Simulated scan of single mutants.
Amino acid sequence: MDSDNFLNGFGFIERGEDPNKVFVMYQCRGDSYGSKCQSCISAAVSGLRRRCPRNKGAVIWYDQCLFEISTINSFNKIDYENDFYLSNPKNVNDKELFNKETSALLVELTNKATDKNNMVGNQFVLYAAGEKRIGTKNVYAMVQCTKDLVTTTCAACFEWIFKMFSKCCDGKRGGRVLGTSCNFRYELYPFLRN
């Protein structure tokens, strides 16, 4: 893989000829570029080799990155099938207020991530992070789309995964939905690297 891609945290590679063509995509979290990205992708490749040695397709998520290998070209398309969610087993005290304010923070971050003026060079950032005070707690959150998407497709992906908020995160102290096209996470502690 080209080490320059680790600087921007995204890579998409296609290898082989039909019917044996393979597509590889990786995306690092918005705070994990350069050597942090490279080490996460190395761990992901090793993890897939160990867990899925003969599979034609697989996806692996780590806190800092995702890595996917597939026989299906998903470039610039939303993957509605490969996702999952995790949440903290502990609940907050005021679920209704917390859900409302956390959802508002995620929407605010989505607007920032999909802002057509939010570019580095000629590429959309499609990532945003922030925090918000809710009652006596600070909530830290981030949203991110893979860099093959455009802002409108990214916004549609966020709209789709936010529908899982009530399933995954209803009143939970932390939660995330991980998809191969977009993801979000929030916690009551800072989880991003500076």
Rank of each mutant, 00 (worst) to 15 (best):
R54Y: 07
Y62L: 12
K36I: 09
A155Y: 10
K112R: 15
L126C: 03
T110D: 05
Q123W: 03
L106C: 06
K77W: 00
E108S: 13
N73Q: 02
G135M: 10
L97Y: 07
F98G: 00
N73Y: 00
L86M: 14
Q38T: 04
E101Y: 06
D63N: 15
F98Y: 12
N76R: 12
N93H: 12
E101H: 08
E108F: 05
R50Q: 14
T136P: 10
F162H: 10
S70C: 05
E131W: 05
I161S: 00
K163C: 07
E81C: 10
C145V: 04
V92P: 00
C154F: 04
F75S: 12
E68P: 00
D148L: 03
L109N: 01
C65D: 02
G30Y: 05
S87N: 09
F67M: 06
C65H: 00
N55L: 13
T114K: 04
N122D: 11
T102P: 02
Y140E: 01
Q123V: 12
Q123T: 12
G121F: 08
A128R: 00
C157E: 02
T153D: 13
N117V: 01
T146K: 01
T151P: 11
E68N: 13
C154M: 01
K112E: 14
E131M: 08
V107H: 12
S166V: 11
A141I: 06
C157W: 00
K116W: 08
V150F: 11
S46G: 09
A113L: 02
K56R: 14
S70T: 03
I69L: 06
I60H: 04
S74Q: 12
S166N: 14
E96T: 15
A129F: 07
S74R: 13
T102W: 00
S39T: 10
L97F: 09
D31W: 03
I78V: 13
Y85W: 13
K147C: 00
T153K: 15
W160F: 15
L66D: 00
V150M: 11
G47Q: 07
V143Q: 00
R51C: 11
V59R: 05
N82T: 11
M164E: 15
I134C: 03
Q144D: 02
V107K: 13
V150I: 15
F158M: 07
A156E: 12
K147H: 09
F84A: 06
N73A: 00
Y127L: 05
I78T: 06
Y127I: 03
M164T: 13
A129C: 08
E159V: 04
A155D: 15
N122V: 09
I134R: 03
D115V: 03
C157D: 03
A156S: 14
T71H: 09
T146I: 07
A156H: 07
D31C: 06
A141P: 04
S87L: 05
P53S: 04
T114C: 04
A155L: 10
A44Q: 03
Y127P: 00
E68F: 07
C37E: 01
N122M: 09
A43E: 09
T102C: 04
F75W: 08
N122I: 11
N117C: 04
G34V: 06
C145I: 00
N82M: 01
W160H: 13
C145Q: 01
